[in-house]
Every structure is written in C-alpha cells, then in structure tokens.
C-alpha cells in the first residue's frame, strides 16, 4: 500500500502531468471497479490522489522540485509514504492562502493592517475586479450597520443587505461568507494573542444567530482545516454570548453550581468499587492516543 503511486499508475514521476495521471487512473479503473475488488480499488484510488497531489504541488512550485531532482527518486519515495497527510494539509492551505489573497485582502475594515502585512507579495499584483468592489461595498455597508449608534441591524436589514441581486450569486455568497466570518473573528479576538473571546458591544445573540443563519458556520463546519478552526471559534463566541446575556443572578448561580457540581465529580474518577469499570465504560471515556499518519494501515 505504501508503494510508489507513480509506479502503480505506470507513469514517470518527473514528467507526469495531472492530465496523464487522470488518464492512467481512468484506464486502470475500468479493470479495477470499486464493486469488484474493494482492496485493489482503494489502493488505486490512494495512488491516484497522492500522485495528483504531488503533480499539483510540482506545477505550483516547480523550483522546489528542480533543486532536489537528483535525489528525488529516493527522497520523494519516502516522503510520499511517510507524510501524505501533511501533503493534503498543505494543499488546502495553499488553496486558502490564494483564496484569501484574492478575495479577503482588501476587506474587513478592522483587519486591514494585519492582512496587508500577511499578503505583501500579492499586494503589488492586486487589481480589484468588479466582483471585489461589490463585496467591498457590501462589507462596508455591513460594518456601518454593525457599529451604528442606533443599535444592531434587524433581520430585515441584514436580509436587505445580503439578498441584494448583486450579491446573490454563489461566488459572491462564498466570498461574503469568508469576509463576514473574518470580520466577526477579528472583532471577537481570534487574532489576538490572549486567545480569549472578546465581545464587542454591538454583538448580540440575536445578531449572531441572524448572521449564522445566513452563512451556517456553527452547524456545518467546513472540511478545510483553517475554516473549521474559525468555525469552532465562532461556536465559542456563541457560548460566550449566551453566558453574557444571562442575568447576573443566573450567572452567579450557574457558576456556583458548576463549582459545586465538580467537587462530587472527582471521586468518580478514582477507583472506589468493583463496578467502576462498568461505570466508566458506560460513560464512554475514550481518548485518542495516536492519530494514524496515513488513513490506511497507519
């Protein structure tokens, strides 16, 4: 299973392009159908995904590969089998980096300074398109509505803003989704070093839920690691907001309950009877010790 993906596809590592890889995969797939031979198909699929990853990486960063092409035969072989998950990771990150570079850079009023620093190289080539301008304008409007001294915008205000014909397309929606999340993350201290949730005065539970209802961050985390991380942060923000909006007495009581509630919990953890194992078993206490590096056979 950890054999070289290019060998399995019958290709030469140095010259194979993504198109070659797809073609080779398609040919082999027709004699390795998923319903016939599960194991063979899974091996072929893995080889295809790994080879494609490497080819994409090579196309994106040809310099990296030219330098050490001499020992590539040996090196990449081991690299590919020891670190495919790392590869996958970097791919998504690259995608995101470019995503953020082209779409996020000019926006999020509060975040501007940070981002300029982050994306300096891209900054020179950056020419705002009509698309970017529309998103910029919408973010500006949202920003103004959010910090308005007259209180946070209502659901109807947000609907009017987001359901504008100019912003209804799926690409606009995606870009806005990124922008608004970034804005919220920035405003709540995601980028701050303390790692604590900060709640700006304008952010209410209702407003948060309206925005989340529009974009669905909390319920449907993305499968891109960076996005998932931000969505998890927003979940924490939601919990903090909940806590914040509770009356003082309720909070006090809860905190007291929590502290008291935890004290009797401690003896549970220590073995105190013959059926402790049953109790623990029923309490589903599992802990991941080792994440296999590769999904298969790790």
């Amino acid at each position: 299973m950890s054999s070289d993906p290019f060998t399995l596809l019958g290709l030469d590592r140095k010259t194979a392009t993504e198109a070659n890889i797809r073609k080779a995969y398609a040919e082999r797939l027709k004699v390795t159908r998923p319903e016939d031979d599960r194991a063979a198909f899974m091996a072929l699929r893995e080889a295809f995904e790994r080879a494609r990853q490497e080819a994409r990486w090579r196309a994106e960063y040809p310099a990296d590969y030219e330098e050490d092409d001499e020992d590539a035969e040996v090196e990449t072989g081991t690299e590919a089998c020891s670190d495919p998950s790392g590869d996958g990771h970097s791919e998504t990150l690259t995608e995101q980096a470019s995503d953020t570079a082209t779409r996020t850079a000019p926006l999020a009023p509060n975040a501007e300074d940070d981002q300029d620093a982050d994306f300096d190289e891209e900054e020179e080539e950056y020419v705002p398109t009509d698309f970017d301008r529309r998103i910029d304008a919408a973010m500006q409007k949202l920003h103004e509505a959010l910090i308005s001294p007259w209180g946070p915008p209502s659901r109807a205000d947000l609907d009017a803003l987001f359901n504008h014909p100019e912003l209804e397309g799926i690409d606009e929606y995606r870009a806005l989704q990124w922008q608004v999340r970034n804005y919220l993350c920035h405003a709540t201290g995601y980028y701050a070093e303390t790692g604590d949730v900060q709640l700006p005065g304008w952010l209410t539970v209702r407003l948060f839920d309206d925005l989340d209802g529009q974009f669905g961050w909390v319920r449907q985390p993305s499968n891109h690691p960076a996005e998932r991380h931000m969505n998890a942060w927003l979940r924490r923000v939601r919990e903090a907001l909940d806590w914040h909006e509770m009356p003082q007495e309720v909070r006090k009581q809860r905190e007291l309950d929590r502290l008291l509630g935890r004290t009797p919990e401690n003896p549970k953890g220590t073995p105190d009877g013959s059926n402790t194992w049953l109790y623990i078993g029923a309490g589903i206490l599992l802990f991941v010790v080792l994440r296999a590096l590769t999904g298969i056979g790790g």
């Binding site: 198909f41 073995p271 078993g281 589903i284």
Partner: peptide, 25 residues
C-alpha cells in the same frame, strides 16, 4: 465527508483509565 467509497480508515484509541475492562465505542 466526501471521501471516495469504498473507503477504509483506522485509528487507535485508548481507555481513559488503565484499569478499565471495557471501552464503549
């Protein structure tokens, strides 16, 4: 999600306590 099927993935888990006689997965 969106992994091509058939697919097979494995991982190792450990009980929280060394004296546990069962893991309820």
């Amino acid at each position: 999600r969106n992994t091509v099927v058939p697919a097979s993935r494995a991982n190792e888990i450990s009980p929280l306590e060394q004296h546990q006689r069962e893991i309820n997965l």
